[in-house]
Design a binder for these strands. Sequence first.
DNA 1: TAGATTGTTAATCGATTAACAATC
DNA 2: TAGATTGTTAATCGATTAACAATC
Lengths: 210, 210
Amino acid sequence: MKQVSERQLERFPIYLKYLLSMRDSGYKTISSPVIANALSFSEEQVRKDLQVVSSNNGKPKLGRDINELIEDIKAFLHYDNLTKAAVVGVGHLGKALMNYKGFNDFGLDIVCGFDIDSNLVGSQVNGKDIYSVYQLSNKIDELGLEIAILAVPLSAAQDNADRLVNAGIKGIWNFVPVHLNVGDDVVIENINMASSFAILQHKLSNKEKN
Amino acid sequence: MKQVSERQLERFPIYLKYLLSMRDSGYKTISSPVIANALSFSEEQVRKDLQVVSSNNGKPKLGRDINELIEDIKAFLHYDNLTKAAVVGVGHLGKALMNYKGFNDFGLDIVCGFDIDSNLVGSQVNGKDIYSVYQLSNKIDELGLEIAILAVPLSAAQDNADRLVNAGIKGIWNFVPVHLNVGDDVVIENINMASSFAILQHKLSNKEKN
DNA sequence: TAGATTGTTAATCGATTAACAATC
DNA sequence: TAGATTGTTAATCGATTAACAATC
């Protein structure tokens, strides 16, 4: 299979959402120019991206079979077998993540939550148990947790990352706006709202100048 | 001022968080290699990035003054005068965003929420009023709202984006995993959790292969 | 002074875009 | 057939990394 870049990986879920909506609208095939126009990408980029995941070639004049393309992207993104995850830090954000309905659609299954607050431990959010962070090691093994979603306060982020790594977690989805230092064998992916907002703000103030 | 790329913009909030923590630890100056090492960037990249925002040159052997650097980054990112925003769609995610304490730190002030559900309209979240989406035009003017934070269900996303644009909003921070089509004069910035998770998942499955 | 760090200029790398023959 | 779309190969663009003289 061809090499894939992070930029491309980011685009596949976007293609998938669009393709699902087009299938719902009754389309059977779809071409790169049509996708490009709908999503504001270039058609060359769409063609290259789809070549990475497609099991069959597209057909000149027709494009690709939508169903096949949807299956190819889902397979490529591992959407079929759910990855078990836990939310660490059950504050406002952590609760919202535990309640979010969309995660199953992209192969993520939030099994439980962890918090340090003894008032929360033993309760449930969206029907999912909240355990103590001191139970991390045990529960990770017992429940087969693969990924931790970190949503603790800033000051507790690195400590909890260390705790997770010690407990055997290899993947951390970090919602805390701070750089985590972990070993090479652990993968971190950050959702940094401050970074995203900086781009929005900058684009807006550039507009105003014109 | 030098040209700045989106990649660089994303890094400035990360630098800022780190610099604040180093200032708290008592440091007065800091060099690019030290920053690079702490944040897992290359030192050349750090040097180039800081040159974009710094009002003064760094000093060989010493580096830069931390306080000055912090002020420069804050000014560059417009962190000083708060941008007024509203959350549109007060579900689990919308509520969490309205409760999130960190936005003020990066120049964002969530003034109120909007929802279509008449059971929510008139209530408050974190002391902030929830208005009907039918009041958007009026309230945007009345309250001086500049940015909309979109957190509605997928099926309602494009309609609400259109509504916001019609009501005069020029910047949309989109938390819905869908591509929004708007005119050239409107800026959209997406927080796409599916895209972010795709990268995490892919890195993890690559690790497993080794 | 010696040397760590700087800013600038050049080289490399990777991703996007363009060009174009092949084909359903 | 004609032409829209494909896949491949080459060119361009932009960002990162490397090299190096300047300097506190």
